[in-house]
Simulated scan of single mutants.
Amino acid sequence: MSLAAERMGRILPSQTIAITQKARALKAEGRDIISLSAGEPDFDTPDFIKKAAIEAIQRGETKYTDVAGTPALRKAVAERLNADFGLDYRPEEVCVSTGGKQVIYNAMVATLNAGDEVVIPAPAWVSYPDIVQLADGKPVIVPTSPEAGFRLTAEQLRKAITPRTRWLVLNSPCNPTGSAYSREELKALTDVLLEHPQVWILTDDIYAKLTYEGREACTVVQVEPRLRERTLTMNGVSKAYAMTGWRIGFSAAPVSLTKELIKLQGQSTSNACSIAQAAALAAVSGPQDFIGEMVAVYQKRRDLVVDALSAVPGLSCARPEGAFYVFVSVQQLLGKRTAGGHVLESDEDFVKAMLEEVGVAAVHGTAFLLPGYFRVSYATSTELLEEACRRIARFCEGLV
């Protein structure tokens, strides 16, 4: 008899993590592998942030903190949200968690009853539907189209909402497509949401600082302040500050919801690491100019990858507006056979064969709820990206 709870049968291991671990294992065996699967900046954490962590250790700040984070960090997060988006949150409306993923998990577990629905535009980050199902909710997946820039339309949202809808999860810029909603596109969605007072909005803004061509990053409460009392704004330090391993995410939401998040966190992980919180405080309250320097590098890498892969017969991809991913269509290549003899019946077959035959790790689109694509991360060096694109082209050219 299995010890696993019934709820564990509803979910799968994270497929992005699984592919990244597979690539690491092959590297450890001596294989020449280029991994474009992880959503992780290749930049080092800035020195002033690392210094803040070291100084916190030296001051003895290695004890428990408040469950919701240190008062200084909660205040700094509120000030950063105001500076970046003009959002007026108070420190008591902020909860600091162990990464953005815990913010989302806390929100779903704290609010969903069995059968409550959560609208998720697809393609979407792999963990959204699994977290919803762990919380006994029902993911309602709404496929978006490349013609709409992989963005949810107001008409689609209106059709997806039912009396059981509890949340809309909105991620902009989006993982895996890099699509970003304009102020006008968000306003069209918020107009629909104003018609449905039972629906809350979780806006995942983790890539909001990583946008290109001077594009403005918008968030829900900024566009429609009347939705403030039923919106959870989520962000963190992992992507914009190159701090993935520090594991700090944060939410800003009405006190009534924030109290429930803190209650749940107090009975699960309790506070996030005190040292990481000190580093995050330095990140959100310190100089921000280095982010623009990273974005400029990412934009050049984006163009390199998009131009190279778009030139490969059978592949196609849009030019992302944010984040650091390219979502590549392989629909024209499915059904073909690789030089190594693998038949490509699905996007998962494609990425598995590409890893095995040319040593490039990517994530298949089915993991992001949209088959027929694969995602590459360009958060790696220009030299590796150039070589990876050459290998992908060689792999595709060998198909028959």
Rank of each mutant, 00 (worst) to 15 (best):
A5P: 03
S14E: 03
T16S: 13
S35H: 01
G39T: 13
D47V: 11
I49L: 02
G60V: 01
E61D: 07
K63S: 07
P71D: 01
L81K: 06
L87T: 08
Q102R: 03
A110L: 05
N113G: 12
I131Q: 12
I131R: 07
Q133P: 02
L134D: 13
L134N: 12
V140T: 14
V142S: 12
P143N: 13
S145Q: 14
R151V: 06
L152T: 11
L157R: 05
P163R: 10
P163V: 11
T165M: 01
W167S: 06
L168Y: 02
S172I: 06
C174W: 00
P176L: 11
T177A: 10
S179T: 14
S182D: 09
E184S: 11
K187A: 15
D191E: 15
V199K: 04
L202K: 07
T203Q: 14
Y207M: 14
K209C: 04
Q222R: 13
R226V: 09
N235H: 14
A240G: 12
Y241V: 07
G245Q: 10
L257I: 09
L257M: 12
K259R: 15
A272C: 01
C273T: 03
A276L: 00
A276S: 15
D289Y: 04
G292D: 10
A296W: 00
V297P: 00
V297M: 03
R301V: 09
V306T: 14
D307R: 10
A308W: 00
S310V: 04
L315M: 08
Y325Q: 12
V326L: 06
R337A: 09
T338E: 01
V343G: 00
L344A: 08
E345F: 02
F350V: 10
A353V: 12
L355K: 12
V358Q: 14
G359W: 08
G359M: 09
G359P: 09
V360H: 11
V360D: 12
A361Q: 13
V363H: 04
T366M: 08
F368T: 08
L369R: 12
L369C: 12
P371K: 09
V376L: 13
S377I: 03
T380Q: 09
T380K: 06
L384W: 03
I392L: 07
G398V: 06
